[in-house]
Simulated scan of single mutants.
Amino acid sequence: MTLSHSTIKKGFIISGLMNMSVLIFSRLFTNNTITEFDPNVMSSFGLLMINIWGLAYISVAKKYALVPWLVAVFAIEKLIYGYVWIQWLLNNDISKVYKEDVMAGMFYSVYGINDLLFCIFFLIIFLKVIKK
Rank of each mutant, 00 (worst) to 15 (best):
S21C: 04
S21M: 07
S21P: 11
S21F: 06
V22L: 04
L23Y: 09
I24T: 13
I24M: 12
I24V: 14
I24Y: 13
F25D: 01
S26T: 12
S26M: 08
S26W: 07
R27E: 09
R27Y: 04
L28R: 07
L28G: 08
F29N: 07
F29M: 10
T30S: 10
T30R: 00
N31K: 00
N31G: 05
N31I: 03
N32M: 15
N32E: 15
T33N: 05
I34V: 09
T35R: 11
E36N: 14
F37I: 08
D38W: 10
D38C: 12
D38Q: 12
D38R: 09
P39D: 06
N40K: 12
N40S: 09
N40E: 11
V41R: 10
V41P: 01
V41Q: 09
V41C: 07
V41F: 07
M42G: 08
M42C: 11
S43F: 01
S43C: 06
S44T: 15
S44K: 15
F45I: 15
F45H: 10
G46N: 04
L47I: 13
L48G: 14
L48T: 14
L48Y: 14
M49Y: 04
I50T: 15
I50H: 09
N51F: 01
N51E: 02
N51H: 00
N51W: 00
N51L: 01
I52N: 01
I52T: 03
I52R: 00
W53Y: 14
W53R: 11
W53V: 14
G54P: 01
G54Q: 00
L55W: 03
L55Y: 03
L55K: 03
L55F: 06
L55V: 11
L55D: 04
A56R: 03
A56F: 07
A56W: 02
A56K: 05
Y57K: 08
Y57N: 10
I58C: 02
I58M: 04
S59H: 05
S59L: 01
S59D: 06
V60I: 15
V60G: 08
V60C: 07
V60N: 05
A61D: 10
A61N: 10
